Computed example of a mutant assay.
Amino acid sequence: MSKNRSHYNKDHKELARKLRKDGTRGETILWNEVLKAKKIHGYQFNRQFCIDNYIVDFISRKLKLIIEVDGYSHRFKHKEDKLRDKNLS
């Protein structure tokens, strides 16, 4: 990410809030047990973060790391997921 350009997209803020509230079991476990309390060497993660036209499950902006927890629905989204990965890279 460029230092001069913020990738945060405020247009998806309400949807991100809803996704945080209604997250999957896997997302909830990962957040509560690992990411929430800076348990990975003290790095901060954000949950359901709006970046460009996407809402990512978890992001550490300092590490430039995005974590996606893909459930059953992603079995049928290979092309979309590949494009998403490319655009977020």
Rank of each mutant, 00 (worst) to 15 (best):
residue 59 I to F: 05
residue 60 S to E: 09
residue 85 D to W: 06
residue 47 R to G: 06
residue 76 F to Q: 08
residue 84 R to F: 05
residue 56 V to C: 09
residue 58 F to Y: 11
residue 45 F to D: 01
residue 58 F to V: 09
residue 71 G to M: 08
residue 77 K to F: 11
residue 88 L to C: 12
residue 31 W to Y: 03
residue 70 D to V: 00
residue 14 E to D: 10
residue 87 N to T: 04
residue 44 Q to V: 09
residue 2 S to K: 08
residue 82 K to H: 15
residue 52 D to A: 08
residue 48 Q to F: 07
residue 49 F to C: 03
residue 8 Y to Q: 13
residue 31 W to N: 00
residue 79 K to P: 01
residue 43 Y to R: 03
residue 17 R to Y: 10
residue 81 D to C: 11
residue 58 F to S: 08
residue 2 S to C: 06
residue 65 L to Y: 08
residue 3 K to L: 10
residue 71 G to L: 07
residue 19 L to K: 07
residue 4 N to W: 04
residue 82 K to C: 12
residue 38 K to T: 02
residue 39 K to D: 01
residue 62 K to W: 03
residue 57 D to S: 15
residue 77 K to C: 07
residue 37 A to S: 05
residue 7 H to T: 13
residue 44 Q to W: 04
residue 58 F to Q: 01
residue 61 R to S: 14
residue 52 D to T: 13
residue 30 L to V: 03
residue 15 L to W: 04
residue 10 K to T: 14
residue 17 R to Q: 12
residue 67 I to Q: 11
residue 67 I to A: 13
residue 18 K to L: 02
residue 47 R to K: 10
residue 16 A to W: 06
residue 30 L to F: 05
residue 54 Y to P: 09
residue 63 L to V: 04
residue 11 D to W: 01
residue 75 R to F: 14
residue 89 S to Y: 12
residue 26 G to E: 10
residue 25 R to M: 03
residue 27 E to P: 01
residue 26 G to T: 03
residue 44 Q to T: 12
residue 29 I to G: 05
residue 80 E to R: 10
residue 29 I to E: 13
residue 48 Q to M: 06
residue 80 E to D: 15
residue 7 H to C: 08
residue 61 R to D: 08
residue 42 G to H: 03
residue 69 V to W: 08
residue 68 E to W: 03
residue 5 R to G: 04
residue 89 S to V: 06
residue 69 V to Q: 05
residue 85 D to G: 09
residue 76 F to N: 11
residue 25 R to I: 09
residue 25 R to F: 05
residue 26 G to R: 00
residue 9 N to D: 12
residue 85 D to Y: 06
residue 5 R to N: 12
residue 53 N to F: 01
residue 82 K to F: 15
residue 55 I to G: 08
residue 25 R to G: 00
residue 59 I to E: 05
residue 55 I to F: 07
residue 64 K to C: 06
residue 3 K to T: 07
residue 57 D to Q: 07
residue 39 K to Q: 10
residue 23 G to K: 01
residue 61 R to H: 10
residue 20 R to I: 04
residue 11 D to N: 14
residue 65 L to D: 10
